[in-house]
Write a protein that binds this DNA or RNA. Structure first.
Ligand SMILES: [Mn+2]
Ligand SMILES: [Mn+2]
Ligand SMILES: [Mn+2]
Ligand SMILES: [Mn+2]
Lengths: 148, 148
DNA sequence: AACAAATTGTAGTATATGCTATATTTTAGC
DNA sequence: GCTAAAATATAGCATATACTACAATTTGTT
């Protein structure tokens, strides 16, 4: 067990505001990323299957249908999707827009990782998490790398 | 409003298990990332200030000290830190190990983004989120890029 | 049309992370 | 040593995301 010394000299606040920035941004990214994954997947399902059903979303995300139902309710409140009881899920214009932007960024991140030399399987898994923390500046840098 | 058609032909389950993989991994990463950020910061504070106090952690992360207290309780349950009432926070051996690994990875991701041409400010913010979704394979690829 | 299977809804629960407001304790300055 | 400020603790609350268990509805097949 470590010795517990009492503090003696209150050090002046080390530059914290800048550090807090990054963490705040990450927390905001996380609040947004479920929405991005959902609308991207819903858009995919509609194109591939003709419609997006809760059960398919659940299987794709690896969660139960109950979790999907609750999340969809949140997305509906935010104006990203529409849904009616016992019916499949649709994207609003706003949702479709977010889906397209999310997919583009996702694809670019994936292509970038592969171009960097990451094995496809690992690249796919990592991209699923990384994609939500990419600022426009970093996206630009990845684009430049792909064009090199 | 979109037309709500009833489903006609239940499509066979599109390959879902592989897709679910990435999402499951991302959720696991998120469960781990608060721990990583905390122990890394605590290690920093101990080195720079001699000790890690809840109020400093709070300022660095941009949350209230109450949030820090609760999170520290969780980390203590997981054996990463020790704490006593009205005393500063210490890392266990396990916590120190995680902190060192997290910092190394964090630094590498940051260096990589900068080398890629991302402005330092954006790189610092993005790295804070990205670092937690980097598999060993991707880390290797980044190392190779830095050595190129 | 009736039945079984699939799908969706609902109730109740759990955990993690965040907050404000207030009480307590420690620290620092006099 | 007192006292005020700083730090920490505690109570109460809110939200997001996840689950199991069970009820209701829809769909596909006989
Ligand atoms: Mn994703
Ligand atoms: Mn870090
Ligand atoms: Mn981080
Ligand atoms: Mn993340």
């Amino acid at each position: 067990m470590p010795v517990r010394t009492r503090r003696k000299n209150p050090r002046r606040a080390v530059a914290t505001e800048t550090a807090a920035h990054g963490h705040r941004r990450t927390r905001m990214d996380h609040a947004q990323e479920l929405a991005e994954d959902y609308v991207e997947l819903i858009d995919d399902l509609i194109q591939k299957c003709g419609e997006a059903r809760a059960v398919d979303i659940a299987r794709h995300l690896g969660v139960t249908h109950v979790t999907v139902t609750k999340s969809i309710a949140r997305l509906q409140n935010e104006g990203l999707v529409t849904s009616a009881p016992y019916r499949s899920i649709f994207l609003t214009d706003k949702g479709r827009l977010l889906a397209r932007r999310a997919r583009e960024r996702h694809r670019l991140v994936l292509d970038f990782l592969i171009a960097l030399g990451v094995p496809r399987n690992d690249a796919e898994i990592d991209a699923e998490g990384i994609e939500h923390h990419i600022s426009p500046r970093t996206l630009d840098a990845m684009k430049r790398f792909l064009k090199r």
